[in-house]
Amino acid sequence: MPRNPEHRTRPRREVAYRVTIEGESAASISCRLIDISETGVRIEVNEGVAVSQRFVLRLSSMANHGRYCETVWRTKEELGARFLETTSETGRTP
Score class of each variant (00 low, 15 high):
residue 33 L to I: 07
residue 89 E to A: 15
residue 33 L to Y: 07
residue 79 L to R: 01
residue 42 R to D: 06
residue 70 E to T: 06
residue 11 P to A: 06
residue 21 I to D: 04
residue 4 N to C: 12
residue 53 Q to T: 13
residue 68 Y to S: 15
residue 56 V to N: 03
residue 2 P to A: 09
residue 47 E to L: 02
residue 9 T to W: 05
residue 28 S to L: 11
residue 48 G to W: 03
residue 82 R to N: 09
residue 94 P to E: 12
residue 76 K to H: 01
residue 67 R to H: 12
residue 43 I to Y: 02
residue 29 I to M: 05
residue 77 E to L: 02
residue 80 G to C: 14
residue 60 S to H: 14
residue 29 I to C: 07
residue 47 E to K: 10
residue 59 L to M: 14
residue 43 I to M: 06
residue 35 D to E: 14
residue 9 T to M: 09
residue 54 R to N: 13
residue 23 G to Y: 04
residue 11 P to F: 04
residue 92 R to G: 12
residue 60 S to E: 04
residue 41 V to P: 01
residue 74 R to C: 02
residue 79 L to I: 00
residue 72 V to C: 11
residue 60 S to V: 12
residue 42 R to E: 11
residue 75 T to R: 03
residue 12 R to Y: 14
residue 48 G to Q: 01
residue 66 G to Q: 01
residue 23 G to E: 10
residue 37 S to R: 05
residue 55 F to A: 11
residue 64 N to K: 07
residue 1 M to K: 10
residue 83 F to V: 01
residue 12 R to L: 07
residue 2 P to H: 10
residue 64 N to H: 09
residue 13 R to F: 13
residue 49 V to S: 01
residue 31 C to M: 02
residue 39 T to E: 13
residue 88 S to I: 09
residue 93 T to R: 10
residue 9 T to E: 13
residue 22 E to D: 01
residue 9 T to P: 00
residue 71 T to R: 13
residue 18 R to Y: 08
residue 53 Q to V: 09
residue 68 Y to K: 11
residue 33 L to E: 10
residue 30 S to K: 09
residue 17 Y to R: 11
residue 27 A to W: 00
residue 83 F to N: 05
residue 47 E to F: 02
residue 65 H to G: 06
residue 24 E to C: 08
residue 3 R to T: 12
residue 85 E to K: 13
residue 72 V to A: 12
residue 1 M to G: 15
residue 90 T to K: 02
residue 90 T to F: 10
residue 25 S to M: 03
residue 89 E to H: 12
residue 5 P to I: 14
residue 16 A to P: 00
residue 46 N to W: 00
residue 53 Q to E: 15
residue 90 T to N: 02
residue 68 Y to M: 12
residue 68 Y to I: 04
residue 70 E to D: 06
residue 47 E to H: 00
residue 64 N to A: 12
residue 19 V to D: 02
